[in-house]
Design a protein around this nucleic acid. Structure first.
Length: 508
RNA sequence: GGGCCCGUAGCUCAGCCCGGUUAGAGCAGGGGGCUUUUAACCCUCGUGUCGCAGGUUCGAAUCCUGCCGGGCCCA
C-alpha cells in the first residue's frame, strides 16, 4: 500500500511522523537502514541480552561496572525524562533497559534519540550496571539506528488481540506476545527430535514428490493444478505413504519422510488444508514395533517441548485442557471392538446382525453402502475416541476401513492397524503394512465401489504402486504421526491455528 | 450446513439493552516540561466509511432485514 492509499488521518499522521524521523536521522548522517552492526556502531558482535543478565545477576543498587557490551534489538518501551532516557531493547533472548544520559552521550547522539520510536531496531554500546532502583541496564556510550520502523507497534500492554490479525500479521503477534514464539520453538523441537530418534535407529530421511498425477494413500479431496510443460493435470499429495513404500520395494529398509500434506477440505480447530506428517517404515517390523516406536517418539518429543512450555524436561505428566495426561510408557492397549462393546454395553462383533440398528440407536447415521466394519469405526469415533484421555493404542481395525493394512494374524476380518489416541486426539495411525499386491488391488477396487455408491468423487488408483508391490515389498511396519496434533497435545494449544504460524486464510 | 457471539481511531476498548447535543477513553502520535524511570508522569492537540447495504424513525453507532469478515459450539 502506498502512503496516499492509507485510510484514516490518524494512520497517515503516524506514518508521516516516522518518515520525518527517518529523514532527520539521515540528515544528521545516521542511516535509517544500516548495512551491518559493525558499520553502524563499529562493533562486530552483539552480546545476547540473556548473556548480560547471566553475567551480572548479582549487582546491587546503583552499581555501574566497567564491562562494556553491545546490544542490538527492537525498542519496545521508551521513557523520556528529559536529560535522561530509558529504552527497553528486546533481542531473541530477552529484554534489557538502556539508560541514555545527556552527561554520557555526545550532544548530537543524545538529541537524535528523540527520533527513536517504539519498534525501531537499534544498536547500543555501553557499560553494564544497575540504576538506583536496581534495574539491570546498559549505560549508553553510543548508539546507532539499525532499522527504522515506518509503522507502529501494536498496543504495548494488551498486544495484538484480534485473532484474525494475529494470524495475518504474525510478525506483529510474535513481537507483541510470547505464545506464538513458544509455538514456533516447540514445532522446531519436535521436528528435530523426530529426526534424531529415527536417524539413531538407522532410518533414512526421504523426500517424495509433492506434485503427483495420482494422489493416493488416503481418502481426501486433493488440490489440483496444471503442469504446463507436460500439459497434464497434477495434484498436491494427500499422503506420503505410496512413495515411501516404493522406496521399500527398492531396498531401502528403514525410511521416513517429514513433510507437508495438502487436503482440499474444511478448516477448523484441528484441520488446516496443509499440515505436517511424519511417516516411517521399518522392514521386518510390524505394528507392535510401531507401538514401541510411537512411545519413544512421543515421549522424546515431550521431553524436548517441556522446557519451552515451562515444564521440567522429564515431566511426562502433562496438563491438557485441564486434565492430566500421563505419557509414561507403556501406553494402554485396547481393541476397537472391545472399546465399542464397552461403550454400547453389549458384545459387538463384525457379524452382529443388529449392527445398523445399534448404530442408529446411538446416534450414528448409517449409509446403505456401509458394511459392519465401517459402522464399527463410526461407532468408535462417535462414542469412544473423544473419551480416551490417557495415551492408548486402539488396535485391530476392520479390514473394510483399512485398505493399506495387512489382515490380522489371528482374525482375518480385522487388520493389524492401530490408532494412538490421547486427550481425545488421534496422534498416530500405524499398520503391519499390506504387502500382497492381489489383496491390495482388491482393496482399492472395493474402496472405489463404495465411493461410487455414495456418490463421492472417484479418483483412479495408483497402478504403478501396485506394479511396485508386485515386484515385492518386504514385510514392514509403518506409522504416520500428525505433527500439528502432537503439538496440540504437547503445548496444550486451543487450536491448530495457534501452532501454524501462517494458517490458510481468506485473502485480505 | 445449524446455533450463539463479535466487528467503533494505527492498537486495546467504552458507548448499543432503554434511539436524542458535536461518538469517548487508554496506548501510540504532534507540541511543551522534567537527570533514575519501570505500562514513567504532568500540561496540551482528534480530519473516525461506528464492517457494508437497505429499512423503520423527526432523528440510528444504538432498533429491524440482508450481506461481508471473524470467533466459539454443534453437524
Amino acid at each position: 500500500m502506498s502512503e496516499d492509499e492509507a485510510i484514516g488521518s490518524r494512520e497517515t499522521e503516524l506514518l508521516a511522523a516516522r518518515r520525518t524521523s527517518m529523514e532527520k536521522l539521515e540528515r544528521a548522517g545516521m542511516p535509517a537502514f544500516a548495512l551491518t552492526l559493525e558499520r553502524a556502531l563499529g562493533v562486530a558482535e552483539q552480546t545476547p541480552i540473556a548473556a548480560v543478565r547471566a553475567a551480572h545477576g548479582e549487582l546491587g543498587l546503583d552499581d555501574v561496572t566497567g564491562t562494556i557490551v553491545t546490544l542490538a534489538g527492537r525498542v519496545v518501551l521508551k521513557r523520556d525524562i528529559g536529560k535522561l532516557k530509558f529504552l527497553v531493547v528486546r533481542d531473541r533472548s530477552g529484554d534489557l533497559q538502556m539508560v541514555a544520559s545527556s552527561a554520557d552521550l555526545p550532544e548530537d547522539q543524545f538529541t537524535l534519540l528523540d527520533e527513536v520510536d517504539l519498534g525501531d531496531i537499534i544498536g547500543v554500546t555501553g557499560r553494564v550496571g544497575t540504576t538506583r532502583k536496581g534495574e539491570l541496564s546498559v549505560f549508553a556510550d553510543r548508539w546507532a539506528m539499525l532499522t527504522k520502523a515506518l509503522r507502529p507497534l501494536p498496543e504495548k500492554w494488551h498486544g495484538l488481540q484480534d485473532p484474525d490479525l494475529q494470524q495475518r500479521r504474525r510478525y506483529l503477534h510474535l513481537i507483541a506476545d510470547e505464545a506464538p514464539r513458544r509455538a514456533f520453538l516447540a514445532r522446531s523441537a519436535v521436528l528435530k527430535t523426530m529426526r534424531r530418534v529415527l536417524d539413531d535407529r538407522g532410518f533414512v530421511e526421504f523426500e517424495g514428490p509433492m506434485l503427483q498425477t495420482v494422489a493416493g494413500g488416503a481418502n481426501a479431496r486433493p488440490f489440483t493444478t496444471h503442469h504446463h510443460a507436460l500439459d497434464t493435470p497434477m495434484k498436491l499429495r494427500i499422503s506420503l505413504e505410496l512413495y515411501l513404500k516404493r522406496m521399500l520395494v527398492g531396498g531401502v529398509e528403514r525410511v521416513y519422510e517429514l513433510g507437508r500434506n495438502f487436503r482440499n477440505e474444511g478448516i477448523d480447530r484441528d484441520h488446516n488444508p496443509e499440515f505436517t506428517m511424519l511417516e516411517a517404515y521399518q522392514a521386518y517390523g510390524d505394528y507392535h514395533s510401531m507401538m514401541e516406536l510411537s512411545e519413544v517418539l512421543l515421549t522424546e518429543c515431550a521431553r524436548a517441548v517441556n522446557p519451552i512450555v515451562g515444564r521440567d524436561a522429564d515431566d511426562l505428566r502433562i496438563s491438557v485442557q485441564g486434565r492430566t495426561i500421563d505419557l509414561t510408557p507403556p501406553f494402554a492397549r485396547i481393541t476397537i471392538l472391545g472399546s465399542v462393546s464397552d461403550a454400547v454395553g453389549e458384545s459387538v462383533t463384525l457379524d452382529h446382525p443388529g449392527l445398523p440398528t445399534l448404530a442408529t440407536h446411538h446416534g450414528v447415521h448409517v449409509e446403505r453402502a456401509w458394511g459392519p466394519g465401517k459402522i464399527v469405526q463410526e461407532l468408535f469415533e462417535k462414542l469412544v475416541e473423544g473419551t480416551i484421555e490417557q495415551p492408548t493404542f486402539v488396535c485391530d481395525f476392520p479390514r473394510e476401513v483399512s485398505p493399506l493394512a495387512r489382515p490380522h494374524r489371528d482374525d482375518p476380518g480385522l487388520t493389524e492397524h492401530f490408532d494412538l489416541v490421547a486427550a481425545g486426539i488421534e496422534l498416530v495411525t500405524a499398520f503391519s503394512e499390506l504387502t500382497d499386491p492381489i489383496e491390495q488391488r482388491a482393496k482399492f477396487e472395493l474402496q472405489q465401489q463404495m465411493k461410487e455408491v455414495l456418490g463421492d468423487e472417484v479418483h483412479p488408483f495408483d497402478e504403478d504402486f501396485l506394479r511396485a508391490l508386485e515386484h515385492g515389498m518386504p514385510p514392514v511396519g509403518g506409522l504416520g504421526m500428525g505433527i500439528d496434533r502432537t503439538l496440540l497435545l504437547l503445548t496444550d494449544a486451543a487450536s491448530l491455528r495457534d501452532l501454524i504460524m501462517f494458517p490458510s486464510q481468506r485473502p485480505e
